[in-house]
Design a protein around this nucleic acid. Sequence first.
RNA 1: UCCUCGGUAGCUCAACGGUAGAGCACCCGGCUGUUAACCGGGUGGUUGUUGGUUCGAAUCCAACCCGGGGAGCCA
Length: 430
Amino acid sequence: MSQVYIENLNEHEGKEVTVKGWVYNRRSSGRIQFVMVRDGTGIVQGVVVKAEVTPDVFALVEELTQESSVVVKGIVRSDDRAPGGYELTITDLELVQLAEDYPITPKEHGTEFLMDHRHLWLRSRRQHAILRVRHEIIKAIRDFFYERDFVLIDTPILTPAACEGTTTLFETDYFDDQAFLAQSGQLYLEAAAMAFGRVYCFGPTFRAEKSKTRRHLMEFWMLEPEVAYADHEDNMRLQEDLVSFIVQRVLKHRRAELQMLERDISRLEKVVVPFPRISYDEAIERLQKAGVEIEWGADFGGGDETILAEQFDRPVFVHRYPTSIKAFYMKPDPERPEVVLCDDLLAPEGYGEIIGGSQRIDEPELLKQRMIEHDLAEETYAWYLDLRRYGSVPHSGFGLGLERTVAWICGLPHVRETIPFPRLINRLYP
RNA sequence: UCCUCGGUAGCUCAACGGUAGAGCACCCGGCUGUUAACCGGGUGGUUGUUGGUUCGAAUCCAACCCGGGGAGCCA
């Protein structure tokens, strides 16, 4: 008799199976005991009746502590009284290890305590639901780009210099030289786009900003596609296609997890193309109309983004920001050089910016000029300028923050639960 | 870095100038269908740290440490 996973128990009704897992909780009532067993795929209630097992097994079950590891034999029965619809009438139980007092009890805990025990917190149902949605989103992203014949290009994590000069980088020693942890793969990806046409990278990204908000991690995962010969409009279409594809996929495959998280699914069902597009100019007008004191030329704060996003029922593009507040590589609008061909995609319900994208400068002279303006060392970026010397073409790309996307789709108030081991400003443990 | 809220039992919290408490966890006992089971009993405290005010401080004051939320910055 081989191991059966709890998520497949319905295929074994009436049969005796072996489940290998951990004790989630235990209740007793004299001559009958209920042991909740989880195995990573689900939770099932085991019923131990004193008259139906050996005295040794019954006594052993009485000793079981939360999270003790056990191998359970039992008969699968359908029962309306059981959480999940199926339960296991236990015939035998083998203790693998008796767990010490488990810190995370079935009662409430504070965030600090749970974060200190993140390695154990991952065993809880809520964390399972979130991380399975994350898993589904990652799979959706990879499928989306595979189906569209993009090539995955892994960009380096150790880099010699900043991508966008303003951001703080984690510094490290590189054989007595200086190196930084990558804050973006974009520049390398532009090189790859000139080689392969349609490419993307998807990996960890590091920012040493002393940010302390619900939207920031020091280490987060970013998806960055880059497409040769794509202009700003093509870029936004790719973004909305991707985001709606991700949402549809999660709705299709992870509905149970969303329900466990008590996510308002109707809000997600509205996320279909096309997404509304408003210019930065229009966004400023909308904010001023809403009573926000903001002038043309200023960047938006988190609150401003929320006000804008609340005016729509699906993610909204804000495009053509002032050149002065955006990155050096963004291409100015030929008809209005004071703005660049860029876009931010703001998620609904106050989740803020999940994508930032732009068409890139393809003229060598302008790019060189911008790099001088931004005090970027020419020798460090010589290779990047080469891309404009040898067959330069219009091209565009964007970056999608995975954790913000997971937080939005799951309806979580904070990004820290969207990654297995979050790196926050004051947390490097566990 | 700044603003704001908080730190009391292993955990979640109460007591807000006058003997430091409850629920859960844990230990003992009871219960044949429990659903964060329930019922009875028990163990468990340098009230974040240091100093001050007071007859008396968890409580009031100051500094510091740690954490939550927010700002800036960004995905």
